[in-house]
């Protein structure tokens, strides 16, 4: 962002950043202003004074325009150990783009995927928690079930919306939907350098359930189990 953009060759601003603890609004703003690899990116922040308050410890984020509705299908079950696991099969999902000014209704007990409007990049010494706003919670809207975001993540955050209330809720992209609490992560230089970043995530579809190693090992158990049953 102009001269405030992250510059590759600028050395780390300070080693004090990685002290564990929740960042205040003031600290978050400082992090947003850095020009080195410790910079926190939240972009765009449409109303800075509303979304980040100095005396609070969170950043309000808004509902984005991308949505995915899960839909019934005649496919088999989602099973990551099956050759046809259907995990990211687009026959299970309907993608919708709702521009600002339009809306989408989430009906009681409906589940849909959404994103934050803001694009986020966490430096290697910060993680964040995604927490629903209490007003939405009181209306029955749950915004996320996977609430931890790891250091190095970059992308828009996928929100798993579910209306647990009894009344349909009309959602407008641009509304504040959740808040992020940023937390320092104690790392030393070596672990920082070896930590992989998450890819620039702007898609909502799930990609994998297990890591490659876990998947391989459970796969072997399944194979052995099948061999036992059918010698």
């Amino acid at each position: 962002m102009g001269s405030s953009t992250m510059k590759q060759n600028v050395p780390s601003a300070s080693n004090n950043w990685s002290k564990a603890g929740v960042l205040s609004g003031v600290e978050v703003k400082k992090r947003l202003s850095l020009e080195d690899e410790n910079r926190l990116v939240i972009s765009p922040i449409l109303e800075m004074h509303e979304q980040i308050r100095d005396d609070q410890a969170s950043v309000d984020v808004r509902l984005g325009s991308q949505f995915v509705l899960t839909q019934p299908s005649a496919l088999g079950e989602i099973n990551e150990f099956s050759e046809f696991h259907y995990l990211a099969d687009n026959r299970l999902y309907q993608e919708l783009y709702i521009p600002i000014g339009r809306n989408i209704v989430i009906h009681p007990h409906q589940f849909l995927l959404a994103t934050t409007l803001e694009y986020i990049r966490l430096p290697q010494d910060l993680m964040c928690y995604v927490v629903g706003r209490s007003t939405w919670g009181r209306l029955g809207l749950i915004i996320a079930t996977a609430i931890g975001v790891h250091p190095g993540f970059s992308g828009t955050l996928t929100l798993e919306l579910r209306n647990l209330g009894e009344t349909p809720l009309r959602l407008f992209p641009g509304q504040t939907i959740a808040q992020l609490f940023f937390h320092g992560v104690e790392t030393d230089e070596n672990s920082r350098q070896s930590t992989s970043q998450y890819p620039a995530a702007v898609e909502l579809f799930p990609k994998r359930i297990s890591s490659q190693t876990t998947k391989k090992k459970i796969g072997r158990f399944i194979e052995a189990n099948q061999t036992d049953k059918h010698p």
């Binding site: 962002m1 102009g2 405030s4 765009p44 694009y119 990049r121 970059s154 970043q197």
Partner: peptide, 11 residues
């Protein structure tokens, strides 16, 4: 290249 898209500009 580090995964941050060009969205805004300014100091």
């Amino acid at each position: 290249l580090a995964g941050v898209p060009p969205i805004e500009t300014g100091n």
